[in-house]
């Protein structure tokens, strides 16, 4: 009996240990964004998120500003910095900034920002974290987005948990 217990305990410890280890190993690695974007710097003038992500309250995708918009703003600021030049150069070449998408949803999920932001009146940071203090580019999901999380929140707020409400 004692031997069995010993086996069991050792096995359990190892399993948990390796699981932790592997969770670490297989965890999503932070991605490198093409620009050193500083959210904190951009938000300081009492801007709302909608200033740059205008779709967040009106359509399903929040969107990001095009490089033209970046360039325009930067031009009016008249700041002569390497970043500004880089943006201007990109804008001139008609290319977009190759941002790496962080908050990705699978193909089979219908998600509407409008629904969550305008109709349900959720704060952006509930899912995206507080960007006001973020000085480095977003390189990984701030809060994990998983079906479990969605469903928990939906249950809590008495939103629909019908599969068809999100699966498409």
């Amino acid at each position: 009996m004692r031997t069995t217990a010993k086996y069991l305990i050792i096995g359990a410890v190892l399993t948990v240990g390796i699981q932790q280890l592997s969770a670490h190993v297989f965890a999503p690695r932070p991605v490198r964004q093409p620009f050193e974007f500083n959210h904190a710097k951009h938000i300081k003038k009492d801007w709302t998120c909608l200033a740059c992500h205008p779709g967040a309250d009106a359509q399903s995708v929040a969107g990001v500003p095009s490089v033209q918009e970046c360039a325009e703003c930067h031009k009016s600021e008249g700041v002569d910095k390497p970043a500004t030049r880089k943006v201007a150069a990109l804008a001139a070449s008609d290319k977009e900034i190759p941002w790496v998408k962080i908050h990705r949803l699978p193909d089979y999920i219908y998600f509407s920002h409008r629904r969550h932001v305008t109709l349900a009146k959720l704060d952006c940071k509930e899912c995206h974290g507080d960007m006001k203090s973020r000085t480095t580019p977003v390189d990984r999901q701030v809060l994990p987005i998983s079906m479990k999380r969605c469903v928990e929140c939906h249950k809590m707020k008495h939103a629909s948990t019908d599969c068809l409400a999100c699966h498409k």
Binding site: Y110, S112, L119, L164, A165, K168
Partner: peptide
């Protein structure tokens, strides 16, 4: 066929707005 349920989601969203 889903009876285009994605259209339903959008229509409901629109109605709510």
């Amino acid at each position: 066929c889903s009876f285009c349920s994605h259209r339903l989601i959008k229509a409901r969203e629109q109605a709510k707005s």
